[in-house]
Design a protein around this nucleic acid. Structure first.
Lengths: 126, 126
DNA sequence: CCTCTATGTTGACGAACTTCGAAGCAAGAT
DNA sequence: ATCTTGCTTCGAAGTTCGTCAACATAGAGG
């Protein structure tokens, strides 16, 4: 359940991953990979899901705690979680009856640094 | 041409804008606003456009320099530029015959800080 | 005025996305 | 074994998106 087919921004990229986005024109291939991640973030439901998952003290959260926060069917939530997982933003594991999700901080860190300008040593939001 | 209808993440938000995304569950309204920006980034063509605009020494670039970099019709490029503009990521101005675009760093800074974890003082990508 | 070049806008069409209900699967309880 | 609960997958409906051709607009230069 954990293995995903999408490597998106793999650490094994040719030119040391990503030259910066705001400093060097992005290549087409990298643009395609990056776009998939941003697209995954481009939906209010998925943003809230990610936020709920990431902001848990314990580091993980059960699907059964996510679903009731939305006016959506369970299949729909499951679908959105799948997209976040395929984007490399989260991962999950089944433990007995329940499935737990957690954040993969490498990806959000990567995005943050890509969006950070050379001069601007971005600090966490207020 | 410069005025846009979308305030997205306005500085005049109620609770000081955005509580962090990775530290506090995102409210529905904020999620909707944020999603529009990420959705604008969720396309390879728009990512490359933004990258080309942002990485210009002069700080601005003419549409006539953007269009030939893509295998797309000029109206399509124009359409993507419009979406980036409505997302608050870029702005433009007509000077004589040509139209120039430039980055609005406030938005990318905002996104970077939203994706930055409390402990992690993100630095610009390599 | 008219023409030419550079961009933006409109309308249309196929592809992709969001959502749901129904069905499937996995694990615990009876 | 069977039932129940939690979650995912499947198939279909409605909506949104990316793209282009055609048309519209703005300014430069006759």
């Amino acid at each position: 359940m954990s293995k995903q087919e999408l490597a998106v921004l793999g650490q094994d990229d040719a030119n040391g991953c990503c030259p910066g986005l705001l400093t060097t024109p992005l290549g087409e291939e990298q643009a395609v990979k990056l776009a998939k991640v941003f697209k995954a973030l481009g939906d209010p439901v998925r943003l809230r899901l990610l936020s709920m998952i990431a902001s848990r003290e314990s580091g993980e959260i059960c699907v059964c705690d996510l679903t009731p926060a939305f006016d959506l069917s369970q299949p729909t939530i499951s679908h959105h979680l799948k997209l976040l997982r395929q984007a490399g933003l989260i991962d999950c594991e089944r433990r007995g009856t329940w499935v737990y999700y957690w954040l993969l901080p490498e990806m959000t860190d990567k995005l943050a640094s890509l969006l950070t300008r050379p001069g601007q040593p971005a600090e966490a939001a207020s």
